[in-house]
Design a protein around this nucleic acid. Structure first.
Lengths: 253, 253
DNA sequence: TAGGTAATATTGGTCATACCAATTACTCTG
DNA sequence: CAGAGTAATTGGTATGACCAATATTACCTA
């Protein structure tokens, strides 16, 4: 699972650009040669990425002409509701923590090994490489969800991650806190979570995951506060208060 | 339309073989070089076909090993995965309990009033009227989700309820326990939950919701045990054990 | 002989290059 | 200015090569 095919990385980047609106529906993407040059990969790899996107119905390739963003990419608004980054993070805080607790009781050695490998990858990768870093982080959380052996839990958390990746406003919010989001802390938290899972300690796993998200939520609130100075000052404060409550009272009784 | 790419033709053929059972789930299909030779195309083209199939979730490629038919391609509904009733109930147990805890802190008086009305309706309605009873029950839970003021939470729980209502196997499972599912107990549990929300007590709300689902899960396990006597005895027992663990250890620390 | 390990073969992943066919852009005519 | 013909661009496919991960075999040890 933690295998990264190059073409997948390229496909992911292109997909994000499309969801971000950088390439609007109907737009023509840069040529394969041009993209290959930009990503420093071969043209074959770019083709593979485009074929994957085509299979997903996101783009449409016309020979001799180019690759075009599919007319109706409304999938974002189609099956994903409008959600704020704070809401989503709060939801992930409570749900992913419970998933971690569940996983702690039934996780297999194989899954533990995968997680360990991912933690290692994340510590190795350049913190600047947002792309790889994010992909590994996502893989980490989805692996934990899979470790619950519960398809409903897995599907739920996958959906939450889709929101994280596909909703433009959420992506933007994360980007603005990314710098504050010290990689070292995050690495430490991941190790804490992994250790709890290794110990098969549901309570510790839940708590570790909660801490992980609490820090993120705090960063986001701080960032949103800074931005709120510019506008929506009053409203933001009310919202801010509501999510601050999550930090103090959540979970462990 | 007749604008076929070679790789699409290859992908189509492979897909047919998989659906025809020529390659069963879990099977490894021939190597890229071998397929390229068979179809008289280049290895690049075979790769492209396999990447398309992978994007469609039909196969799964492992570097150094080969391409394997995905374990289960049976997507019941368009966007709902195949899930067992036990899995779903376990997921609802942990997620809806957390949602209730969240809601307890921010629920509005208006929402409390609606819930009270729903509890009243459920106690009035004839226990025989499964249709109305189920609708009210669903409304009760969705209202609590809405009361969190968190669109992500709300969407998550709505999706879980969609599974409950739309997946045939889940509906069947619920139907078979419906008789055991004493309406009086359920009414009592609903009142407990409502009271905790009125008190704005997150811990009590979480616990009440957990109890609600624990009883349901227990009923389902018992029912599934009875049915398991007929078939799948061994396998069911293993599964049963796994979910029994959820009952003993979940949540309140 | 059983078990483990090192050497080897196989397999997917990626790249560079080349050529074809369709499309698009351009240019030159009338 | 319109249209035809040409040139440049673009995707489609093929070769052949090399790497890294995996699988298989051979071999050696206890």
């Amino acid at each position: 699972m933690p295998d990264y095919r190059l073409y997948q990385s390229v496909a992911e980047t292109l997909k994000q650009r499309i969801f971000d609106g950088e390439y609007a529906p109907g737009d023509r993407l840069p040529g394969e040669r041009e993209l290959a040059d930009e990503f420093n990969v071969s043209r074959v790899t770019v083709r593979e990425a485009e074929i994957a996107l085509q299979a997903m119905g996101i783009i449409q390739v016309k020979p001799g002409s180019g690759a075009y963003v599919a007319p109706r990419i409304k999938r974002v608004s189609a099956d994903l509701p409008a959600i704020s980054a704070l809401e989503l993070t709060e939801a992930r805080l409570v749900f992913e923590s419970e998933a971690a607790a569940l996983a702690a009781r039934v996780i297999s050695d194989d899954m533990l090994q995968r997680l360990a490998a991912l933690v290692h990858v994340m510590s190795d990768v350049h913190p600047d490489d947002d792309q790889a870093s994010l992909a590994a982080d996502r893989e980490f959380h989805l692996t934990i969800a899979a470790a619950t052996s519960n398809a409903a839990v897995q599907h739920t958390i996958e959906t939450l991650w889709r929101m994280r990746m596909e909703l433009p406003n959420v992506r933007r919010a994360h980007a603005s806190v990314c710098s504050d989001d010290a990689a070292t802390e995050r690495g430490h938290e991941h190790r804490q979570i992994l250790q709890a899972l290794k110990d098969r300690d549901p309570t510790a796993a839940r708590r570790a995951m909660q801490e992980h998200f609490k820090r993120l939520l705090t960063s986001m609130i701080d960032a949103s506060e800074a931005e709120a100075v510019e506008a929506l000052r009053l409203e933001a404060n009310a919202s801010r208060q509501r999510f601050l409550n999550s930090l103090s009272q959540n979970g462990a009784t």
